[in-house]
Simulated assay, not measured.
Amino acid sequence: MKENTKKEMISWAKSFIVAIILAFICRQFLFSPITVFGESMSPSFLDHDKVVISKTSKIQRFDVIVFDAPDIENEHYIKRVIGLPGDSIEVKNDVLYINGKAYKEPYLDENKRISPSNSLTEDFSLLEKTGKSKVPDNMLFVMGDNRLNSKDSRTFGLISYDSVIGEVKFRFYPLNEIGLPK
């Protein structure tokens, strides 16, 4: 009886160690939970929302990503990818133009409704904000959904792909907002 108990304990210990190693590998290389701080992505994501990011996603235009803050050490930002390498970006009369084509931004609708002027994004061009006419290779142009209150590429410039931690794939808190990001 004692021998069986000892074997069972060793089996449980091995299983526990394997589970810990798998969890570590998954968190380091595949996905990770992140807490949102600040209002720059409101109403899409609010302060203290909890999300899961994928560290293996291929970043595409309009994805929401988490990246190392370029202006504050050991901090992370959550923003929406607006420009990919090779893109020219401009906003005129609150309309986003990428490579000369106008894009609708439905994630801004709620903020536009409550904005006193119904306008969220001041006119600008990538050239004015970064000194470059197109997003360079290995770089991204990002903006927050709360355009009136977002420190983003309009302020700190382009970010490198190397600074991207992952793409937001799932919100798990608050409970009434559980699900895939909009």
Results as ranks from 00 to 15, higher is better:
residue 104 K to W: 09
residue 64 V to R: 02
residue 116 P to Y: 00
residue 101 K to S: 14
residue 69 A to P: 13
residue 139 M to S: 15
residue 103 Y to F: 15
residue 146 N to Y: 07
residue 105 E to H: 09
residue 162 D to T: 08
residue 99 N to C: 04
residue 141 F to W: 11
residue 93 N to F: 10
residue 100 G to C: 06
residue 119 S to R: 15
residue 69 A to D: 14
residue 60 Q to T: 14
residue 65 I to G: 09
residue 164 V to T: 01
residue 126 L to V: 09
residue 62 F to R: 12
residue 123 D to A: 12
residue 120 L to A: 09
residue 77 Y to H: 10
residue 70 P to I: 07
residue 71 D to E: 09
residue 101 K to D: 12
residue 135 V to N: 05
residue 66 V to M: 06
residue 162 D to G: 12
residue 102 A to P: 14
residue 126 L to H: 08
residue 136 P to Y: 01
residue 61 R to Y: 10
residue 163 S to I: 01
residue 53 I to K: 08
residue 90 E to H: 14
residue 154 R to N: 08
residue 72 I to S: 12
residue 107 Y to Q: 08
residue 88 S to E: 07
residue 76 H to L: 09
residue 140 L to T: 02
residue 60 Q to G: 13
residue 111 N to D: 08
residue 76 H to I: 09
residue 95 V to P: 00
residue 121 T to V: 14
residue 150 S to P: 07
residue 167 E to Q: 15
residue 146 N to D: 11
residue 63 D to N: 12
residue 144 G to F: 03
residue 123 D to T: 12
residue 59 I to C: 11
residue 64 V to Q: 00
residue 145 D to N: 10
residue 127 L to I: 07
residue 164 V to C: 05
residue 120 L to W: 06
residue 53 I to W: 07
residue 54 S to D: 13
residue 156 F to M: 10
residue 145 D to P: 07
residue 155 T to D: 13
residue 165 I to T: 13
residue 144 G to C: 07
residue 58 K to P: 04
residue 106 P to I: 09
residue 167 E to F: 00
residue 52 V to Q: 02
residue 109 D to W: 00
residue 67 F to Y: 15
residue 113 R to Y: 03
residue 101 K to W: 05
residue 106 P to A: 13
residue 149 N to C: 07
residue 84 L to C: 01
residue 81 V to P: 00
residue 126 L to N: 10
residue 130 T to A: 09
residue 62 F to G: 13
residue 72 I to R: 15
residue 153 S to P: 13
residue 114 I to W: 03
residue 62 F to W: 09
residue 73 E to I: 08
residue 157 G to D: 03
residue 158 L to G: 06
residue 107 Y to H: 06
residue 156 F to K: 11
